[in-house]
C-alpha cells in the first residue's frame, strides 16, 4: 500500500513545486530586469549560479544548508543567552528548543518537515531555471508592442502588467514545457532527500534480503519494480507532451508570431 502512496507523494510534489518554482522564477526574472542595480545583480546571480554545476549537488547541498539555516535562525531567536559556538569542530549544535522539528514531535511532523524541505529545494533550483526562461520570454516580446504601449502613455509598470506579461507566455511555453519534463524526471531524486518515495519502495519491496520483508517469498524483483517505474515515467512524459501541445495551440491563438499567423491563415 505504501508503494501506491508514494506515487501520490510524487504527484503532490509536482503539484506544489511547479507553481512555487514559477513564483521563484517570476521573482528572479523581474529582479533581473529591474532598474535598481543591486536587485538586478541578485536576480542575475540567482539564475546564473545554477548553471555549470550538476543539480544533484544542489539537492544534496540545499537540504542540509536550509535545515541548518532554519535551525540557526530559530536558535538566535529562541535562545539568545546561549554562549557556546554553534559549530563545535565537526558538529552543528543548537539549543533543544531550536531543533527542527522538535525532538518530541510525532513521526508525521518529521515526515512533513522533510517533505517541505524537499519541496523548497526543488522550488529554489527549478525557480532559477524558470526564471531564466521567463527572463528570455520577457525579452522576446516584440519591441513594437512595447513601443506602442509607450506611445499610448503607459507607465513602465502598466506596460509590464498589461503588455509584457500577457504576451510573454507564448515565448515562455516551449521553455517551460521542457522544464516540466525535466521536473518530472527529477522527482526520483526525492529519494536522495530522505523522502520515502517510489524509488525507496521499489528498492525495499523488490529486494529479497531485508528481514522485515521476509513475508514476500520471492527472489530479487527490483528489476521488475524499476521496470514498472520506467514505464510510469514514460507514460507520464507522453501524456504531458500531448497536454502541453494542446495548451501551446490555445496560447498561439491570435499572437503576432509565425505559428499564430499560420493558425489564422488555416482558419481563414
Amino acid at each position: 500500500m505504501n508503494m501506491y502512496d508514494a506515487f501520490g507523494t510524487v504527484l503532490l510534489l509536482l503539484a506544489i513545486t511547479a507553481p512555487l518554482a514559477m513564483v521563484f522564477g517570476f521573482g528572479g526574472a523581474v529582479a533581473a530586469r529591474s532598474r535598481i542595480a543591486p536587485l538586478r545583480w541578485i536576480g542575475k546571480t540567482y539564475m546564473a549560479i545554477v548553471r555549470g554545476i550538476p543539480d544533484i549537488v544542489f539537492f544534496l547541498f540545499f537540504v542540509i544548508a536550509l535545515d541548518q539555516a532554519f535551525e540557526y535562525l530559530r536558535h538566535k531567536w529562541k535562545c539568545p543567552e546561549w554562549t557556546e559556538p554553534i559549530r563545535q569542530g565537526n558538529d552543528f549544535i543548537v539549543c533543544q528548543a531550536a531543533k527542527l522539528p522538535l525532538g518530541n514531535a510525532p513521526q508525521w511532523i518529521h515526515e512533513v518537515y522533510g517533505f517541505s524541505l524537499a519541496i523548497l529545494t526543488f522550488a529554489i533550483v527549478f525557480g532559477a531555471f524558470a526564471g531564466n526562461v521567463l527572463f528570455g520570454a520577457m525579452q522576446a516580446v516584440p519591441r513594437a508592442q512595447i513601443e506602442t504601449a509607450e506611445a499610448y502613455g503607459f507607465s513602465p509598470r502598466q506596460t509590464f502588467r498589461r503588455v509584457i506579461v500577457p504576451q510573454m507566455w507564448v515565448f515562455a511555453l516551449p521553455g517551460l514545457s521542457n522544464l516540466w519534463m525535466v521536473l518530472i524526471k527529477a522527482t526520483p531524486l526525492l529519494f536522495l532527500l530522505g523522502v520515502e518515495d517510489i524509488v525507496y519502495w521499489a528498492r525495499e519491496l523488490g529486494g529479497s534480503k531485508q528481514p522485515q520483508f521476509t513475508d514476500y517469498p520471492h527472489p530479487d524483483w527490483r528489476m521488475w519494480y524499476f521496470g514498472a517505474l520506467l514505464i510510469f515515467y514514460l507514460l507520464f512524459t507522453r501524456v504531458s507532451e500531448i497536454v502541453l501541445d494542446r495548451i501551446m495551440g490555445k496560447l498561439t491563438h491570435g499572437q503576432a508570431t509565425a505559428a499564430g499567423e499560420a493558425q489564422r491563415k488555416a482558419a481563414a
Binding site: K185, P188, L189, V199, A202, R222, M223, F226, G227, Y233
Partner: peptide
C-alpha cells in the same frame, strides 16, 4: 525516463 531510474533499472 529519468536517468536515475535508468541507472537503477
Amino acid at each position: 525516463s529519468p536517468l536515475f531510474i535508468q541507472f537503477f533499472f
